[in-house]
Design a protein around this nucleic acid. Structure first.
Length: 411
RNA sequence: GGGGAGGUGCCUGAGUGGCCAAAAGGAGCGGACUGUAGAUCCGUCGGCUGAAUAGCCUACGUAGGUUCGAAUCCUACCCUCCCCA
């Protein structure tokens, strides 16, 4: 009987190990999975989310998709919104102390956050929790007790703390509390597994230690590689502007995927799609030997990602639009409409600056003017370089910079 | 509690009375090239003014002051780092 479970467990592990950076400890995980099959007791798989960034992008989906795999195998996910810790501000990856969010901000963010994750997670096997539920009830005495289980030296093992200390950057005393509280979340939830990016390694390990201190079986931690953003260098994040949001329209999603460096194609496939690993390896081999043009491979990637979030039809359209827009320099079919009232025209003309302002792509008029002066504005394929009035007709195509297309609609 | 160093634009960082909207690099943006990108090269890079070799506004931690004139000098305050206790 145990034998049958063994085979199943090994199969599960093969799936769960895809793309992971590190699993601590694999033996523990095997044991927990085995117990699941023996007792039917689902594992509690936890990941904490910072409520300060409520827009989900592909970077978040790396771990979310892993959570989904656990769900598909029958386990329960706790989508933990760090509403309490969010107010402290996780120092991880931040060069400096972050400002604290108000309670209202946190709550509003958390709501929009939770809404989006069900594009990936299965609602019936997801429990949304807020860590303020237990953390705000801790007494000072309890907090001191928890804090006493760690030492300053231990905390300074954490790379970003050590780095800031080395560089003479401030470290708030409260920041030491963050890993402890996150670890305590695992205790409160009796988590079996916790997921996070590699930058979360330290925090996740604290959870493991703390659970042991509280007499619980320590959680298995699984870290996933950090996903580089469209710049190919920095971790994907909203604040760096190198992210691809899962709610983005197909065309821009497609275009952004196409803009990643070729060297990231494989990683994106592994972490963001369900394309079988063997197939990815085969394509990689073909690419390295010059049999597969990276552009084509990348288009497959972009297609697949758009398909996952918008469906096949949208993906096909995005591919076609992309080819039109960039390979042929034509306006994509799905270009955004730009409505202009006829009353705004004088003798059929509109000042180009007014038109640019309407597109909303510029932060300021100076920026728009610069783009115009530098030759980044095209109307119906012809460059508009002078600061002049232009004749507008229904259906005209305005191209602004490299990637913004608008179809003029006169109303 | 004592002593020292420092807070400059999105970031790093130079600037110590006018030539400073502030060097240099990075990021961003535009152009060329390309496969869409990357690399490379060129340009741009606070804002406003119907278009300017122009003017105005805001900006060098905060608030005042000195001066014809301050990121630069003075005073107070806030914040950070280092050393000693």
């Amino acid at each position: 009987m145990e034998m049958g479970f063994d085979i199943q467990v090994e199969r599960d592990l093969a799936l769960l190990m895809r793309g992971t950076e590190e699993i601590i400890d694999l033996v523990d995980l095997r044991k927990k999975l085995l117990r699941f099959y023996a007792t039917g007791q689902a594992l509690i798989v936890k990941e904490g989310f910072d409520p300060s960034a409520p827009d989900i992008h592909l970077g978040h989906t790396v771990t979310l998709r892993k959570l989904r795999q656990f769900q598909d195998l029958g386990h329960e996910v706790v989508f933990l919104i760090g509403d309490f810790t969010g107010r402290i501000g996780d120092p991880t990856g931040k060069k400096e102390t972050r400002k604290q969010l108000t309670e209202e901000e946190v709550r509003a963010n958390a709501a929009t956050y939770a809404e989006q994750v069900f594009k990936i997670l299965r609602p019936e096997r997801t429990r949304v929790a807020f860590n303020s539920t237990w953390l705000s009830r801790l007494t000072l005495e309890e907090i001191v007790t928890i804090a006493a289980k760690f030492t300053v030296a231990r905390m300074l093992e954490r790379e970003d703390f050590a780095k800031r200390l080395r560089e003479g950057k401030p470290i708030g005393l409260h920041e030491f509390l963050y890993p402890l509280l996150q670890g305590y979340d695992s205790v409160a939830l009796k988590a079996d597994v916790e997921l996070g990016g590699t930058d979360q390694r330290f925090n996740l390990l604290v959870g493991r230690d703390l659970q042991r201190e509280f007499g619980q079986e320590p959680q298995v931690i699984i870290t996933m590689p950090l996903l580089e953003g469209t710049d190919g260098v920095e971790k994907m994040s909203k604040s760096l502007g190198n992210y691809i949001g899962i709610n983005e329209p197909p065309f821009s999603m497609f275009g952004k995927v196409m803009s990643i460096p070729d060297t990231l194609i494989e990683k994106y496939f592994v972490l963001l799609t369900d394309v079988p690993l063997e197939e990815i390896q085969e394509k990689k081999r073909a690419y390295e030997q010059g049999e597969l043009h990276p552009k084509l491979w990348k288009e497959e990637l972009a297609f697949e990602i758009v398909r996952m979030y918008h469906g096949k039809e949208a993906a096909e359209k995005a591919l076609g639009d992309f080819e039109r827009a960039f390979s042929q320099g034509l306006c994509p079919e799905s270009a955004q409409e730009l409505c202009i009232a006829r009353q705004e025209l004088s003798e059929g003309k509109l000042w180009i600056m007014k038109l640019l302002e309407r597109t909303g792509v510029f932060q300021s008029k100076s920026e728009a003017r610069r783009c115009l002066e530098q030759g980044g504005v095209y109307l119906n394929g012809e460059r508009v370089s002078a600061n002049e009035d232009v004749v507008l007709q229904d259906g005209d195509v305005l191209k602004v910079g490299k990637k913004f297309f608008f179809r003029i609609k006169l109303v």
